[in-house]
Design a protein around this nucleic acid. Structure first.
Lengths: 209, 209
DNA sequence: TAGATTGTTAATCGATTAACAATC
DNA sequence: TAGATTGTTAATCGATTAACAATC
Protein backbone atom coordinates (compact mmCIF):
# COMPACT_ATOMS: atom_id res chain seq x y z
CA UNK A 1 0.00 0.00 0.00
CA UNK A 2 1.26 3.40 -0.97
CA UNK A 3 1.26 5.89 1.87
CA UNK A 4 -0.32 9.22 1.38
CA UNK A 5 1.60 12.11 0.01
CA UNK A 6 1.09 14.13 3.16
CA UNK A 7 2.55 11.43 5.36
CA UNK A 8 5.70 11.20 3.26
CA UNK A 9 5.94 14.97 3.25
CA UNK A 10 5.93 15.00 7.00
CA UNK A 11 8.45 12.20 7.13
CA UNK A 12 10.80 14.36 5.04
CA UNK A 13 10.25 17.25 7.39
CA UNK A 14 10.90 15.13 10.47
CA UNK A 15 14.11 14.03 8.86
CA UNK A 16 15.29 17.58 8.24
CA UNK A 17 14.45 18.52 11.77
CA UNK A 18 16.16 15.48 13.25
CA UNK A 19 19.33 16.30 11.36
CA UNK A 20 19.27 19.80 12.79
CA UNK A 21 18.72 18.47 16.30
CA UNK A 22 21.54 15.99 15.85
CA UNK A 23 23.87 18.75 14.73
CA UNK A 24 22.95 20.70 17.83
CA UNK A 25 24.11 17.73 19.90
CA UNK A 26 20.75 16.28 20.91
CA UNK A 27 20.49 12.52 21.35
CA UNK A 28 16.83 11.97 22.20
CA UNK A 29 13.60 13.60 21.12
CA UNK A 30 9.96 13.39 22.25
CA UNK A 31 6.97 13.38 19.99
CA UNK A 32 5.87 16.77 21.26
CA UNK A 33 9.29 18.36 20.60
CA UNK A 34 9.35 17.07 17.09
CA UNK A 35 5.75 17.97 16.45
CA UNK A 36 6.26 21.53 17.59
CA UNK A 37 9.38 21.96 15.47
CA UNK A 38 7.62 20.72 12.37
CA UNK A 39 4.29 22.33 13.12
CA UNK A 40 2.10 19.27 13.70
CA UNK A 41 0.56 17.67 16.79
CA UNK A 42 2.40 15.15 18.93
CA UNK A 43 -0.28 12.60 18.17
CA UNK A 44 0.35 13.09 14.48
CA UNK A 45 4.04 12.36 14.94
CA UNK A 46 3.38 9.14 16.82
CA UNK A 47 0.70 8.12 14.34
CA UNK A 48 3.04 8.62 11.42
CA UNK A 49 5.78 6.62 13.07
CA UNK A 50 3.46 3.80 14.04
CA UNK A 51 2.30 3.62 10.42
CA UNK A 52 5.82 2.62 9.44
CA UNK A 53 6.43 0.45 12.47
CA UNK A 54 8.87 2.90 14.02
CA UNK A 55 8.78 2.64 17.77
CA UNK A 56 10.42 4.53 20.59
CA UNK A 57 10.58 3.91 24.32
CA UNK A 58 7.41 4.13 26.35
CA UNK A 59 8.95 6.67 28.58
CA UNK A 60 12.19 7.80 26.99
CA UNK A 61 11.03 9.20 23.65
CA UNK A 62 13.03 8.38 20.56
CA UNK A 63 16.79 8.04 19.93
CA UNK A 64 17.56 10.50 17.15
CA UNK A 65 20.14 8.32 15.44
CA UNK A 66 17.84 5.31 15.34
CA UNK A 67 15.00 7.42 14.09
CA UNK A 68 17.09 8.95 11.32
CA UNK A 69 18.29 5.56 10.21
CA UNK A 70 14.77 4.20 9.99
CA UNK A 71 13.39 7.23 8.18
CA UNK A 72 16.30 7.20 5.75
CA UNK A 73 15.56 3.60 5.01
CA UNK A 74 11.89 4.32 4.35
CA UNK A 75 12.62 7.29 2.15
CA UNK A 76 15.27 5.35 0.27
CA UNK A 77 18.19 7.67 0.82
CA UNK A 78 20.71 4.87 0.56
CA UNK A 79 21.76 5.79 -2.93
CA UNK A 80 22.16 9.16 -4.63
CA UNK A 81 19.25 10.01 -6.86
CA UNK A 82 20.10 11.34 -10.28
CA UNK A 83 17.74 13.81 -11.90
CA UNK A 84 17.83 16.01 -14.99
CA UNK A 85 16.51 19.49 -15.58
CA UNK A 86 14.79 20.65 -18.75
CA UNK A 87 14.49 24.33 -19.64
CA UNK A 88 17.31 26.61 -18.54
CA UNK A 89 15.49 29.92 -18.14
CA UNK A 90 15.63 32.11 -15.06
CA UNK A 91 14.13 29.55 -12.76
CA UNK A 92 15.93 26.62 -14.35
CA UNK A 93 19.35 28.16 -14.00
CA UNK A 94 18.63 29.20 -10.42
CA UNK A 95 17.81 25.58 -9.63
CA UNK A 96 21.01 24.42 -11.32
CA UNK A 97 22.98 26.66 -8.98
CA UNK A 98 20.93 25.73 -5.92
CA UNK A 99 22.99 23.96 -3.26
CA UNK A 100 20.10 22.48 -1.31
CA UNK A 101 19.55 19.33 -3.39
CA UNK A 102 23.00 17.77 -3.15
CA UNK A 103 22.75 17.81 0.63
CA UNK A 104 19.62 15.68 0.39
CA UNK A 105 21.25 13.10 -1.80
CA UNK A 106 19.74 14.41 -5.00
CA UNK A 107 22.02 15.32 -7.86
CA UNK A 108 21.11 17.19 -11.03
CA UNK A 109 23.39 15.40 -13.45
CA UNK A 110 22.67 17.41 -16.56
CA UNK A 111 20.35 19.95 -18.11
CA UNK A 112 18.77 20.50 -21.51
CA UNK A 113 17.62 23.52 -23.48
CA UNK A 114 16.60 24.17 -27.07
CA UNK A 115 18.49 27.47 -27.27
CA UNK A 116 22.13 26.96 -28.41
CA UNK A 117 23.14 30.09 -26.48
CA UNK A 118 22.23 28.29 -23.27
CA UNK A 119 24.19 25.13 -24.01
CA UNK A 120 27.05 26.02 -21.70
CA UNK A 121 28.00 25.13 -18.15
CA UNK A 122 25.75 26.56 -15.43
CA UNK A 123 27.36 26.08 -12.04
CA UNK A 124 28.96 22.67 -12.45
CA UNK A 125 26.30 21.33 -14.73
CA UNK A 126 26.52 21.07 -18.50
CA UNK A 127 23.51 22.12 -20.56
CA UNK A 128 22.94 19.98 -23.66
CA UNK A 129 20.75 20.40 -26.76
CA UNK A 130 17.24 19.18 -26.11
CA UNK A 131 17.41 16.74 -29.00
CA UNK A 132 19.91 14.62 -27.04
CA UNK A 133 17.54 14.17 -24.15
CA UNK A 134 15.98 10.79 -24.96
CA UNK A 135 19.31 9.17 -25.48
CA UNK A 136 20.66 10.59 -22.25
CA UNK A 137 17.68 9.40 -20.22
CA UNK A 138 17.94 5.90 -21.61
CA UNK A 139 21.73 5.60 -21.35
CA UNK A 140 21.84 6.85 -17.79
CA UNK A 141 18.63 5.27 -16.56
CA UNK A 142 17.22 8.58 -15.32
CA UNK A 143 13.80 8.37 -13.70
CA UNK A 144 13.10 11.92 -12.55
CA UNK A 145 13.06 15.27 -14.36
CA UNK A 146 12.61 18.87 -13.29
CA UNK A 147 10.54 20.67 -15.90
CA UNK A 148 11.12 24.42 -16.14
CA UNK A 149 10.18 25.04 -19.77
CA UNK A 150 7.58 27.59 -20.92
CA UNK A 151 3.98 26.47 -20.54
CA UNK A 152 3.35 26.30 -24.29
CA UNK A 153 5.84 23.50 -24.86
CA UNK A 154 5.49 21.72 -21.52
CA UNK A 155 3.07 19.01 -22.65
CA UNK A 156 5.14 18.22 -25.70
CA UNK A 157 8.40 18.00 -23.75
CA UNK A 158 6.63 15.96 -21.09
CA UNK A 159 5.66 13.34 -23.65
CA UNK A 160 9.23 13.03 -24.88
CA UNK A 161 10.43 12.58 -21.31
CA UNK A 162 7.86 9.92 -20.50
CA UNK A 163 8.49 7.92 -23.63
CA UNK A 164 12.20 7.97 -22.87
CA UNK A 165 11.61 6.44 -19.46
CA UNK A 166 11.03 9.31 -17.00
CA UNK A 167 8.64 8.25 -14.21
CA UNK A 168 8.39 11.39 -12.08
CA UNK A 169 8.25 15.06 -13.07
CA UNK A 170 8.59 18.11 -10.87
CA UNK A 171 6.62 20.51 -13.02
CA UNK A 172 7.05 24.28 -12.73
CA UNK A 173 5.16 25.06 -15.95
CA UNK A 174 1.70 26.47 -15.19
CA UNK A 175 -0.19 23.74 -17.03
CA UNK A 176 -1.87 20.51 -16.03
CA UNK A 177 0.28 17.84 -17.66
CA UNK A 178 -1.51 14.83 -19.05
CA UNK A 179 0.51 11.69 -18.36
CA UNK A 180 -0.10 7.94 -18.59
CA UNK A 181 -1.04 5.93 -15.52
CA UNK A 182 1.89 5.29 -13.25
CA UNK A 183 3.76 8.49 -14.02
CA UNK A 184 3.90 10.93 -11.13
CA UNK A 185 3.70 14.69 -11.56
CA UNK A 186 4.27 17.16 -8.74
CA UNK A 187 3.25 20.68 -9.60
CA UNK A 188 4.89 23.79 -8.23
CA UNK A 189 3.10 26.91 -9.36
CA UNK A 190 4.61 29.97 -7.78
CA UNK A 191 2.09 32.42 -9.21
CA UNK A 192 -0.77 30.42 -7.72
CA UNK A 193 1.01 30.20 -4.36
CA UNK A 194 1.22 33.97 -4.31
CA UNK A 195 -2.35 34.48 -5.50
CA UNK A 196 -3.50 32.22 -2.73
CA UNK A 197 -1.56 34.14 -0.15
CA UNK A 198 -2.98 37.40 -1.45
CA UNK A 199 -6.48 36.03 -1.08
CA UNK A 200 -6.04 34.93 2.52
CA UNK A 201 -4.26 38.09 3.60
CA UNK A 202 -6.93 40.24 1.99
CA UNK A 203 -9.75 38.28 3.50
CA UNK A 204 -8.22 38.57 6.96
CA UNK A 205 -7.85 42.31 6.51
CA UNK A 206 -11.47 42.50 5.49
CA UNK A 207 -12.56 40.48 8.50
CA UNK A 208 -10.94 42.93 10.86
CA UNK A 209 -12.98 45.82 9.54
CA UNK B 1 -16.05 32.02 7.16
CA UNK B 2 -12.70 31.43 5.58
CA UNK B 3 -12.75 28.88 2.78
CA UNK B 4 -10.23 26.13 2.78
CA UNK B 5 -6.87 26.58 1.16
CA UNK B 6 -7.55 23.80 -1.30
CA UNK B 7 -10.74 25.41 -2.52
CA UNK B 8 -9.02 28.72 -3.18
CA UNK B 9 -6.20 26.88 -4.90
CA UNK B 10 -8.66 25.28 -7.24
CA UNK B 11 -10.39 28.58 -7.84
CA UNK B 12 -7.05 30.03 -8.99
CA UNK B 13 -6.56 27.08 -11.28
CA UNK B 14 -10.04 27.41 -12.77
CA UNK B 15 -9.27 31.04 -13.41
CA UNK B 16 -6.06 30.26 -15.27
CA UNK B 17 -7.82 27.65 -17.32
CA UNK B 18 -10.77 29.92 -18.12
CA UNK B 19 -8.40 32.60 -19.37
CA UNK B 20 -6.78 30.08 -21.69
CA UNK B 21 -10.17 28.93 -22.96
CA UNK B 22 -11.23 32.50 -23.52
CA UNK B 23 -8.08 33.19 -25.51
CA UNK B 24 -8.85 30.17 -27.63
CA UNK B 25 -12.19 31.74 -28.47
CA UNK B 26 -14.49 29.65 -26.29
CA UNK B 27 -17.57 31.29 -24.83
CA UNK B 28 -19.14 28.54 -22.71
CA UNK B 29 -17.73 25.75 -20.59
CA UNK B 30 -19.24 22.73 -18.82
CA UNK B 31 -18.24 21.48 -15.40
CA UNK B 32 -16.76 18.34 -16.88
CA UNK B 33 -14.60 20.26 -19.39
CA UNK B 34 -13.22 22.47 -16.71
CA UNK B 35 -12.72 19.60 -14.30
CA UNK B 36 -10.78 17.61 -16.82
CA UNK B 37 -8.57 20.55 -17.73
CA UNK B 38 -7.70 21.21 -14.11
CA UNK B 39 -7.58 17.58 -13.05
CA UNK B 40 -10.56 17.39 -10.71
CA UNK B 41 -14.02 15.83 -10.96
CA UNK B 42 -16.97 17.64 -12.49
CA UNK B 43 -18.79 17.35 -9.17
CA UNK B 44 -15.89 19.09 -7.48
CA UNK B 45 -16.13 21.99 -9.89
CA UNK B 46 -19.86 22.44 -9.29
CA UNK B 47 -19.41 22.07 -5.55
CA UNK B 48 -16.72 24.73 -5.48
CA UNK B 49 -18.84 27.11 -7.49
CA UNK B 50 -21.91 26.53 -5.39
CA UNK B 51 -19.85 27.28 -2.28
CA UNK B 52 -19.38 30.80 -3.58
CA UNK B 53 -22.87 31.15 -4.98
CA UNK B 54 -21.69 30.97 -8.56
CA UNK B 55 -24.36 29.47 -10.76
CA UNK B 56 -24.58 28.49 -14.39
CA UNK B 57 -27.45 27.40 -16.59
CA UNK B 58 -29.13 24.11 -15.85
CA UNK B 59 -28.47 22.93 -19.31
CA UNK B 60 -26.09 25.33 -20.92
CA UNK B 61 -23.07 25.17 -18.66
CA UNK B 62 -21.30 28.39 -17.69
CA UNK B 63 -20.52 31.56 -19.64
CA UNK B 64 -16.76 31.98 -19.43
CA UNK B 65 -16.83 35.77 -19.17
CA UNK B 66 -19.34 35.73 -16.33
CA UNK B 67 -17.41 33.02 -14.54
CA UNK B 68 -14.14 34.91 -14.82
CA UNK B 69 -15.70 38.06 -13.50
CA UNK B 70 -17.13 36.29 -10.48
CA UNK B 71 -13.93 34.43 -9.69
CA UNK B 72 -11.90 37.60 -10.08
CA UNK B 73 -14.18 39.28 -7.63
CA UNK B 74 -13.79 36.49 -5.09
CA UNK B 75 -10.04 36.34 -5.41
CA UNK B 76 -9.80 40.11 -5.21
CA UNK B 77 -8.01 40.79 -8.45
CA UNK B 78 -9.45 44.27 -8.74
CA UNK B 79 -6.29 46.01 -7.64
CA UNK B 80 -2.63 45.18 -8.24
CA UNK B 81 -1.02 43.51 -5.27
CA UNK B 82 2.34 44.86 -4.24
CA UNK B 83 4.85 42.47 -2.70
CA UNK B 84 8.52 42.65 -1.72
CA UNK B 85 11.24 40.05 -1.93
CA UNK B 86 13.90 39.50 0.72
CA UNK B 87 17.14 37.67 -0.06
CA UNK B 88 18.55 38.06 -3.55
CA UNK B 89 20.43 34.78 -3.97
CA UNK B 90 20.04 32.43 -6.91
CA UNK B 91 16.40 31.74 -6.30
CA UNK B 92 15.58 35.30 -5.27
CA UNK B 93 17.04 36.83 -8.39
CA UNK B 94 15.33 34.26 -10.57
CA UNK B 95 12.03 35.26 -9.04
CA UNK B 96 12.80 38.95 -9.59
CA UNK B 97 13.24 38.21 -13.29
CA UNK B 98 10.22 35.94 -13.48
CA UNK B 99 7.48 37.27 -15.77
CA UNK B 100 4.64 35.14 -14.47
CA UNK B 101 3.60 37.29 -11.50
CA UNK B 102 2.86 40.55 -13.29
CA UNK B 103 0.37 38.76 -15.52
CA UNK B 104 -1.56 37.70 -12.42
CA UNK B 105 -1.75 41.22 -11.05
CA UNK B 106 1.08 40.73 -8.59
CA UNK B 107 4.00 43.12 -8.68
CA UNK B 108 7.32 42.78 -6.88
CA UNK B 109 7.97 46.43 -6.11
CA UNK B 110 11.39 46.12 -4.52
CA UNK B 111 13.89 43.68 -3.06
CA UNK B 112 16.27 43.64 -0.11
CA UNK B 113 19.60 42.00 0.64
CA UNK B 114 22.27 42.39 3.29
CA UNK B 115 25.13 42.09 0.80
CA UNK B 116 26.08 45.51 -0.67
CA UNK B 117 27.28 43.78 -3.83
CA UNK B 118 23.71 42.73 -4.51
CA UNK B 119 22.19 46.17 -4.02
CA UNK B 120 21.79 46.83 -7.73
CA UNK B 121 18.96 46.53 -10.22
CA UNK B 122 17.85 42.98 -11.03
CA UNK B 123 15.53 43.00 -14.01
CA UNK B 124 13.57 46.18 -13.40
CA UNK B 125 13.65 45.91 -9.65
CA UNK B 126 15.98 47.79 -7.34
CA UNK B 127 17.61 45.85 -4.49
CA UNK B 128 17.98 47.89 -1.28
CA UNK B 129 19.96 47.34 1.94
CA UNK B 130 18.07 45.15 4.35
CA UNK B 131 18.20 47.77 7.07
CA UNK B 132 15.76 49.92 5.07
CA UNK B 133 13.15 47.21 4.99
CA UNK B 134 10.93 48.22 7.93
CA UNK B 135 10.62 51.76 6.74
CA UNK B 136 9.76 50.64 3.22
CA UNK B 137 7.07 48.24 4.41
CA UNK B 138 5.45 50.91 6.55
CA UNK B 139 5.67 53.73 4.03
CA UNK B 140 4.27 51.67 1.20
CA UNK B 141 1.78 49.65 3.19
CA UNK B 142 3.17 46.32 1.96
CA UNK B 143 1.38 43.25 3.28
CA UNK B 144 3.12 40.35 1.56
CA UNK B 145 6.76 39.28 1.33
CA UNK B 146 8.63 36.56 -0.54
CA UNK B 147 11.34 35.17 1.71
CA UNK B 148 14.36 33.69 -0.07
CA UNK B 149 17.04 34.17 2.56
CA UNK B 150 19.26 31.37 3.95
CA UNK B 151 17.59 29.17 6.54
CA UNK B 152 19.82 30.36 9.39
CA UNK B 153 18.54 33.93 9.26
CA UNK B 154 14.98 33.22 8.13
CA UNK B 155 13.33 33.38 11.57
CA UNK B 156 15.11 36.59 12.45
CA UNK B 157 14.18 38.29 9.17
CA UNK B 158 10.64 36.99 9.51
CA UNK B 159 10.26 38.74 12.84
CA UNK B 160 11.42 42.03 11.40
CA UNK B 161 8.93 41.67 8.55
CA UNK B 162 6.03 40.87 10.83
CA UNK B 163 6.72 43.70 13.22
CA UNK B 164 6.86 46.10 10.28
CA UNK B 165 3.41 45.04 9.14
CA UNK B 166 3.80 42.08 6.80
CA UNK B 167 0.78 39.73 7.04
CA UNK B 168 1.65 36.98 4.59
CA UNK B 169 4.97 35.32 3.77
CA UNK B 170 5.82 33.01 0.90
CA UNK B 171 8.70 31.19 2.54
CA UNK B 172 11.36 29.36 0.52
CA UNK B 173 13.73 28.88 3.46
CA UNK B 174 13.70 25.27 4.68
CA UNK B 175 12.60 26.11 8.20
CA UNK B 176 9.28 26.18 10.02
CA UNK B 177 8.74 29.87 10.73
CA UNK B 178 7.15 30.75 14.04
CA UNK B 179 4.72 33.62 13.58
CA UNK B 180 2.00 35.28 15.68
CA UNK B 181 -1.64 34.39 15.21
CA UNK B 182 -3.13 35.96 12.11
CA UNK B 183 0.05 35.93 10.04
CA UNK B 184 -0.04 33.53 7.13
CA UNK B 185 2.97 31.54 5.97
CA UNK B 186 3.03 29.47 2.79
CA UNK B 187 6.01 27.19 2.54
CA UNK B 188 7.67 26.15 -0.69
CA UNK B 189 10.43 23.64 -0.09
CA UNK B 190 11.86 22.45 -3.34
CA UNK B 191 14.20 19.89 -1.82
CA UNK B 192 11.29 18.23 -0.04
CA UNK B 193 9.21 18.27 -3.22
CA UNK B 194 11.98 16.38 -4.96
CA UNK B 195 12.56 13.98 -2.09
CA UNK B 196 8.88 13.21 -2.11
CA UNK B 197 8.89 12.53 -5.82
CA UNK B 198 11.92 10.26 -5.42
CA UNK B 199 10.08 8.28 -2.78
CA UNK B 200 6.98 7.69 -4.87
CA UNK B 201 8.88 6.87 -8.04
CA UNK B 202 11.09 4.41 -6.17
CA UNK B 203 8.17 2.76 -4.44
CA UNK B 204 6.37 2.31 -7.74
CA UNK B 205 9.45 0.76 -9.26
CA UNK B 206 9.69 -1.61 -6.32
CA UNK B 207 6.04 -2.56 -6.64
CA UNK B 208 6.56 -3.69 -10.18
CA UNK B 209 9.24 -6.22 -9.19
C1' DT C 1 6.54 3.97 43.18
C1' DA C 2 4.90 8.12 40.74
C1' DG C 3 5.20 10.54 36.73
C1' DA C 4 5.67 10.84 31.97
C1' DT C 5 5.45 9.30 27.41
C1' DT C 6 4.37 6.03 24.00
C1' DG C 7 1.24 3.32 20.88
C1' DT C 8 -3.27 2.57 19.45
C1' DT C 9 -8.16 2.78 19.32
C1' DA C 10 -12.25 5.35 18.78
C1' DA C 11 -14.25 9.85 17.76
C1' DT C 12 -14.21 13.76 15.07
C1' DC C 13 -13.66 16.51 11.43
C1' DG C 14 -13.46 17.89 6.72
C1' DA C 15 -13.17 17.09 1.98
C1' DT C 16 -14.51 14.46 -2.04
C1' DT C 17 -17.65 11.69 -4.62
C1' DA C 18 -21.96 9.65 -5.99
C1' DA C 19 -26.40 10.19 -7.08
C1' DC C 20 -30.37 12.27 -8.55
C1' DA C 21 -34.15 15.65 -8.65
C1' DA C 22 -34.75 19.97 -10.86
C1' DT C 23 -34.88 22.14 -15.10
C1' DC C 24 -33.34 24.36 -19.38
C1' DT D 1 -40.59 16.32 -25.58
C1' DA D 2 -36.14 13.98 -24.78
C1' DG D 3 -31.63 14.66 -23.53
C1' DA D 4 -28.19 16.88 -21.02
C1' DT D 5 -26.38 19.47 -17.36
C1' DT D 6 -26.69 21.85 -13.16
C1' DG D 7 -27.13 22.31 -8.00
C1' DT D 8 -27.47 19.99 -3.83
C1' DT D 9 -28.04 16.34 -0.61
C1' DA D 10 -26.45 12.21 1.35
C1' DA D 11 -22.81 8.75 1.45
C1' DT D 12 -18.16 7.82 1.48
C1' DC D 13 -13.65 8.29 2.26
C1' DG D 14 -9.50 9.65 4.52
C1' DA D 15 -6.93 12.26 7.61
C1' DT D 16 -6.41 14.33 12.12
C1' DT D 17 -7.24 14.56 16.92
C1' DA D 18 -8.54 13.07 21.50
C1' DA D 19 -8.14 9.96 24.88
C1' DC D 20 -6.28 6.55 27.54
C1' DA D 21 -4.36 1.99 28.71
C1' DA D 22 0.20 0.14 28.65
C1' DT D 23 4.59 0.65 30.50
C1' DC D 24 9.28 2.36 31.20
Amino acid sequence: MLSSKNTIFRLCRYRHCLKDLKNLGYVKVFSDNLGEAVGVSAAQVRKDFSLFGISGNRKGGYIIDDLLEKINHILGKDEIQKVILVGVGNLGSALLKYKGFEKEGIQIVSAFDADPAKQVKVGNIQVYPIKDISEFIKNNNIKIAILTVPGIVAQEVCEVLVSAGIRGILNFAPVNLRVPEGIIVSNVNLAIELENLVYFVCSMERRKE
